[in-house]
Design a binder for these strands. Structure first.
Lengths: 244, 244
DNA sequence: AAGTGGTCTAGACCACTGA
DNA sequence: CAGTGGTCTAGACCACTTG
């Protein structure tokens, strides 16, 4: 007999992954039942389930209690991506720190009343002395945040903040668009007012869905492009990105 | 005794998820061993493993054979996103179909020799009669593709193609940038030549990593914004997007 | 009622890490 | 070497779907 180098569950999952990817199993098709597969592969139901759960988390199949497992349609519109505004080669230049009345866009995103105060932190990223990106960060001011200093310390946003802390509490939404710079940003980035910039808005949400921070980054051409990956390995971001 | 409505594995996973998210467990910390948890929760090792595997696939912890489970650092720079260029409310207007000599950018992406021919499919998306986006699609021409017609039929790209087929074979890479329209695209989109556009390049790769298609889409302001989500639920795209 | 997946047990043996 | 996670078994009971 052959040496069982590959675990049974991996072999089983591999067989069906291949069948689905190759098209011998089409979306909507039912897989054999767990008991049937346990017989066919001379193994236990637990092992069969482990294999099928793998396929589930890869987004290839779906289980329905009392019915069975069914092949899903591939989803072409899902992507995984990385986005770091700040990279090791950058120099961060803080341009402005101030407590200001929230502009309308910021009020709307942070759900603030008119006249509310926010802390504004404005910075530019330099690469080889040239400004390649900027970011305006806004944080609500007041409400249990006694000093400007503590807000500003917090204003670096989690990815820059103290990594030991319980920052799993936060998540983040990105909105990407193309814009021309405002006069202020044209000055900050030392770019022409007709240069198209990639605008990346970052909304930082607490575990309860409250917006706790808002950042608007502008990336200059050449510097500013973002990559994303899609694939049948939709279940796992790590895998998806390693392929890049 | 209380009714066991919540499965043991879910309770166990929930306890540790909470502890990690709340910060009582910090990145680098070791979790109790499987046997220890089995005792503590009065359950079997299989159930403990199911709980811990859940946390693994959520990206909260990592296992090391012979050592144990350890809490990971959150990754703020990972996002999941959807991107559909074509939506139900759009009318597709094909503008041009032709076999042309590949422009340099296309040659480079598709790894073609100078002078190679490609099929170009150029279309505009209309919403309420207004052009909101365009896309230029390029496919290698020749090599077992006998007729222009079959290439053009294929040129709609998988997300528009026959959904029954084994399209799990393909995956896709996106590159997003901000650009001003070329004169041709300004005409096609009926927009000003100073209007910043979101450029989304789509590279379609076969399972062997060969580029089989290339598309450049331009999205107009207002229409053109893309959203992405990050969070501790990094393991699963579906979950990530449902929170949106 | 029969068949399906969902949860769970109490063992077992293996491969790997570290003292 | 003892302890860890990785794989696996042969059952069991439950909840759900379908006839």
């Amino acid at each position: 007999m052959s040496v069982d180098k590959v675990p049974t569950y991996a072999k089983l999952a591999g067989d069906f992954r291949t069948a689905i990817v190759a098209g011998s199993l089409s979306p909507g098709d039912a897989l054999p039942t767990e008991n049937e597969l346990a017989k066919r592969y001379q193994t236990s139901r637990v092992t069969v389930r482990k294999a099928l759960n793998t396929l589930c988390s890869e987004g290839l199949v779906e289980s329905h209690q009392g019915k069975g497992y069914f092949v899903l349609r591939p989803e072409y519109d899902r992507y995984s991506m990385r986005f770091d505004l700040v990279r090791p080669e950058h120099e961060i230049k803080y341009d402005r720190m101030a407590v200001i009345e929230a502009p309308p866009e910021v009020r709307s995103v942070l759900s603030l009343a008119p006249g509310s105060l926010v802390v504004l932190l404005q910075l530019a990223l330099l690469q080889d002395g040239r400004a390649v990106a900027s970011e305006d960060k806004y944080l609500p001011y007041g409400k249990g945040v006694p000093t400007i200093e503590s807000v500003i310390h917090y204003a670096d946003f989690p990815e820059l903040a103290d990594k030991r802390l319980s920052s799993y509490k936060l998540h983040c939404e990105l909105r990407i668009s193309a814009e021309l710079p405002s006069p202020e940003h044209a000055r900050l980035l030392k770019c022409d007012k007709t240069e198209p910039l990639l605008a990346v808005r970052r909304i930082i949400l607490s575990e309860r869905g409250e917006t706790v921070g808002y950042g608007v980054a502008y990336l200059r051409e050449g510097y500013g492009h973002i990559s994303a990956l899609s694939g049948y390995n939709g279940g796992n971001l790590k895998t998806g990105l390693r392929n890049a």
